[in-house]
Design a protein around this nucleic acid. Structure first.
Lengths: 108, 108
DNA sequence: TTGATAGTTCGATAATAATCGAACATTGAT
DNA sequence: ATCAATGTTCGATTATTATCGAACTATCAA
């Protein structure tokens, strides 16, 4: 396995973070991490194939949203809250405050 | 021309807004509108083809970010700040506070 | 070493989106 | 009606991304 990516938060572009967060699967991962503190990849996969999730975790890492550390055979993920709050103040809070990702109304 | 799209802000999903903002061209339009209040499409095109910009404006409208009104032959665009601030409190502020879209560091 | 578990990487495919020229529509002026 | 200006829509192309099986890597236990 190649070295884990952990970009300097100052090298991350806003567009990059917004893009990473714009995918419902990844947004759901971020929400869960915000609520639960940290979790392994398998806990967060929602039944999706490992290869699909591995892709999403890579996007989350490259965009500075998530840090992954190796803990035995599993990988524990956590939000880079401090880094993000410093680099993009209020952004993560606003995203997490938005509740679920779907429309606020169920019907018209 | 078909009727202008102006979705109820409650029908807009967070993912949708984040996606719309994740494109540098569209993010730049949003920044300009936040600074200047309103502007026509041609003022905001940055030299790009009209058809490309028309696509971006449609994405911005469909995601609830921008409202377009017809003013003579030109179309004036403005941010839906109040709607957005109510639906996603703090989000637009955080995005606009982030300064330019690129990495914070020019070099390493 | 063998096996089980947890993720990554690779490769192929399908889906989505960006780009942009050309044709069309709308407005306002002459 | 004709013309110029402003955008939209259409259609085709290209580029990016999501998805996922299969092969591979790493870790731990027996």
């Amino acid at each position: 396995m190649r070295k884990m990516i952990l970009p300097d938060i100052d090298d991350v572009a806003l567009s990059q973070v917004l893009y990473a967060l714009s995918d419902p699967v990844r947004l759901d991962v971020v929400r869960t991490l915000a609520r639960d503190g940290e979790a392994s990849c398998s806990v967060l996969d929602g039944g999706r194939p490992k290869s699909s999730m591995s892709h999403h975790f890579r996007v989350l890492r490259e965009s500075g949203l998530v840090r992954t550390r190796h803990e035995g055979p599993s990988h524990m993920n956590e939000l880079r809250r401090d880094d993000l709050d410093r680099r993009f103040p209020g952004l993560l809070d606003a995203v997490l405050a938005a509740g679920d990702a779907g429309p606020a109304r169920r019907d018209g």
